[in-house]
């Protein structure tokens, strides 16, 4: 198992929590975890070794087809690498909505 440190943008937190509440096989997080995400946007999570960003999105119940910005230890992960890039123990994974005009 590996430990990932998640940092979730505030505008993704309730989407994530909604998916937890509508818990399906794809999402295995519980209510207390959801509350923790809402409060701080931070969460440590255990995953299988060899997990990829796509595996992480599946576990969180976030749609993999939705465009997100994923940054691992300060480096962008290209969308084409979501299914292949291995996440390693102890990395910080930042999940953000895509950039758009503000």
């Amino acid at each position: 198992m590996i430990t990932l440190h998640l940092k979730v943008a505030s505008s993704l937190r309730d989407t994530l929590c909604e998916s937890v509440r509508e818990s399906t096989a794809a999402s295995s997080l519980d209510e207390s975890t959801a509350a923790e995400i809402m409060q701080s946007g931070r969460l440590s999570l255990q995953m299988e070794e060899g997990s990829t960003p796509s595996d992480l999105l599946n576990k969180l119940g976030l749609p993999t087809e939705q465009r997100l910005m994923i940054i691992v230890d300060g480096k962008m992960v290209a969308r084409t690498e979501y299914g292949t890039r291995e996440l390693t123990d102890g990395v910080t994974v930042s999940l953000n909505p895509p950039i758009q005009a503000g």
């Binding site: 943008a9 505008s11 465009r67 910005m69 930042s94 909505p97 950039i99 005009a101 503000g102």
Partner: peptide, 24 residues
Amino acid sequence: DGGRKSLTKYGTNAMIDTMNEFGG
């Protein structure tokens, strides 16, 4: 549209987390 839904719910300030993480 997902972008529209985000603008409705969070306004344009949703971008502040993204830009901070990005380093922009």
